[in-house]
Write a protein that binds this DNA or RNA. Structure first.
Lengths: 246, 246
DNA sequence: CGGATCTTTGACCACTCTCAAGTGAAGTGG
DNA sequence: CCACTTCACTTGAGAGTGGTCAAAGATCCG
């Protein structure tokens, strides 16, 4: 893999960073081994066993983080309890609202998620010093913006059935580690859905029941197979994409 | 105002830039007079008399732009004609998808909008050379992301009535030139709505009819007054904000 | 096995959409 | 000056998608 080429000076790289994807595809890829050493002295790894908040809206966050493994939900909550997930982040995404003490949405880890956090001020100093770091963060923000707008179309104009199909297509594209970047697999795709129906509903602006009904509709239409609640088989990813309205 | 302080060297600033807000609050504020002169040699002003596309999704855009006056809609269109407005941009916002030939949404100007466009490659070179320029663009992207996520909550979880109230609150905050940045006026607010009901509907994921009905509901609830279709009076901006679900 | 939790399914209901008609303002031409 | 068109908006009646409420299956785990 690419890591062989990049790891010529692996011995200079901090131990904790050696197997970390954020060092390649994530923001840490902008740093030299020396800078990595400097940053890694202040990092802290955390694993989440259940659904717990990484950053809440109330407390002032003093750290940023990289996702090492798992999925993190960005969610907004209304006073009466209505919830909307406004983003899903995967390894090796950067986590946290840059240049603000408080984000207006909470970052919530799903089970088995692992992150590597570091002080806000330290990263902000690095951003000033390392243009490549700002470039990476800027690009992640632009990509997240594209993605958010794609979901605005779904939330505003797609039917329940299209929403669920588009969601499954989205997950299929993000879950398959082998397809780098934009490469979309042609035929059968298989993945494990580690989000509950409630989380999917909160992402799509639907209820649990409607999500469940649309899953069975997609199953009856032979667009997906479901095994053991979470394991999804998509015979034709192309057909699923079309069912999602694009 | 701030312009007095910044305009000590006004004579060095290109004529076309002298009365331009983008030079202060927009991205051009990152540039020195010399850099402004360099950029302004390649800029082109355009005014839009009707609803016309600034950048479409099909053509590869070769320019970026600043909005000088008016409102620009970012919209997505589905194959069957369903439309979703995924962003509204106001002067002096920057326009265009950085580092991509094609955006996945069209930028459409409303009547009376004026923009200042410049070559993509030129700006991209400036970004490399002027860190403050990337910083401004990065910050605009982060703000747009916050805004997009705020609307995802509305699109996914708010009722029609909350959506329209939240929309009016949003416009009230953006239209009033006197309130800089985050300052929210306390009492009565007045503004002209230069978007049609169809545009509002496409922004909120509703139909024209539902938008119209919610306008009359808000009027009957004395949360707004409507004069001549477009002129809105809000007696209490606070009450309107609460009607919008926050 | 029993209990807890998540998911599925059904019946009913309501919010919003669809379709249709009507209103008002602005512009055109006789 | 007033019919007449046009266009955006409003209002109404009926329909349908998705929500609500309730109950029954699954799955997990003690």
């Amino acid at each position: 893999m690419t890591s062989d080429r990049l790891d010529i000076h692996n011995s200079d790289v901090p131990v904790v960073c050696r197997s970390c994807e954020a060092r390649h595809r994530g923001v840490c890829g902008a740093l030299s081994p020396e800078q990595l050493v400097q940053l890694s002295r202040h990092t802290r790894r955390r694993t989440f066993d259940e659904t717990t908040e990484v950053f809440s809206t109330d407390e002032r966050a003093v750290t940023y983080a990289n996702i090492l493994r798992g999925v993190v939900k960005l969610e907004k909550l209304m006073a009466d309890g209505r919830r909307q997930i406004v983003g899903l982040k995967f390894a090796p995404d950067f986590l946290g609202r840059l240049f603000r003490d408080q984000s207006d949405c909470a970052s919530v880890a799903t089970t088995g998620t692992e992150i590597c956090s570091f002080p806000k001020l330290l990263l902000e100093r690095i951003i000033e010093e390392v243009p490549a770091m700002r470039e990476r963060l800027h690009n992640q923000a632009l990509n997240e913006l594209d993605e958010a707008r794609e979901w605005m179309l779904a939330l505003g104009r797609k039917t329940a059935s299209e929403k669920v199909a588009a969601f499954l297509y989205f997950i299929a594209c993000h879950m398959n580690p082998e397809d780098n970047a934009a490469k979309v697999p042609e035929d059968e795709v298989t993945f494990d859905l580690n989000l509950t129906r409630a989380e999917i509903a909160d992402f799509l602006g639907l209820t649990i029941e409607t999500v469940s009904r649309q899953f069975t509709n997609l199953r009856k239409a032979r667009l997906i197979e479901i095994h053991h609640r979470t394991h999804i088989v998509v015979p034709s990813i192309k057909a699923l994409r079309e069912a999602g309205g694009s």
